[in-house]
Simulated assay, not measured.
Amino acid sequence: MNEIIFFENIQKVTVGYQNETILTIEGNVFSKGYDINPNNPNEFINISSLIEDKNDRIIEDIVSGFSSIYLLTSNHNVYGIGSNEYGQLCFDSKTLKKKEKPILMMKKVSKIFSGIISHHVFLLNSNQ
């Protein structure tokens, strides 16, 4: 039997090839999928709580890439987590060890964009 989980105060939902991600009105991000938690891909985890800088834990926007998730913080920083061919965002199960925290990708970003199940993400900085 499949478990049904309900979240209150949902602001946005994104779906990648191997992930499902929910942004709450409070700025928390919950995600599940093989590229987020390969040991238990059906378990939602709070990705925003994994960001080391506590000042960046309030998330304003999210987008999903093909096997990755990008988080825009209230401080205008973008973090990425997930898997890709070379393991830069989180892990490559064939060659690299898993990293469990989102990495800071860029500062002073005003908007993030991604196509449906896209292999690319676009960042608009504060200078546009």
Results as ranks from 00 to 15, higher is better:
106 M>N: 14
25 I>W: 09
84 N>I: 04
33 G>D: 06
11 Q>A: 14
100 E>M: 03
88 Q>F: 11
64 S>H: 04
14 T>P: 00
16 G>D: 13
107 K>D: 12
26 E>L: 03
79 Y>V: 05
37 N>F: 04
74 S>V: 08
80 G>K: 04
100 E>I: 05
70 Y>V: 13
24 T>C: 11
64 S>Q: 08
22 I>E: 11
64 S>F: 10
50 L>F: 09
89 L>K: 06
55 N>W: 04
59 I>Q: 01
71 L>K: 05
54 K>Q: 15
70 Y>H: 10
16 G>K: 01
71 L>V: 05
95 T>A: 14
33 G>W: 04
106 M>H: 12
16 G>I: 01
17 Y>Q: 14
93 S>L: 10
85 E>V: 01
14 T>K: 07
68 S>F: 05
50 L>T: 01
93 S>E: 06
12 K>A: 07
41 P>R: 15
96 L>G: 09
13 V>W: 07
99 K>M: 10
103 I>Q: 06
34 Y>M: 10
40 N>C: 10
99 K>C: 12
85 E>W: 00
56 D>R: 02
56 D>P: 00
63 V>G: 08
104 L>W: 14
75 N>S: 09
73 T>M: 13
23 L>Y: 03
22 I>C: 09
107 K>P: 02
81 I>M: 00
72 L>H: 08
109 V>H: 07
35 D>P: 02
57 R>A: 15
53 D>Q: 06
78 V>W: 03
56 D>G: 08
107 K>W: 02
16 G>L: 07
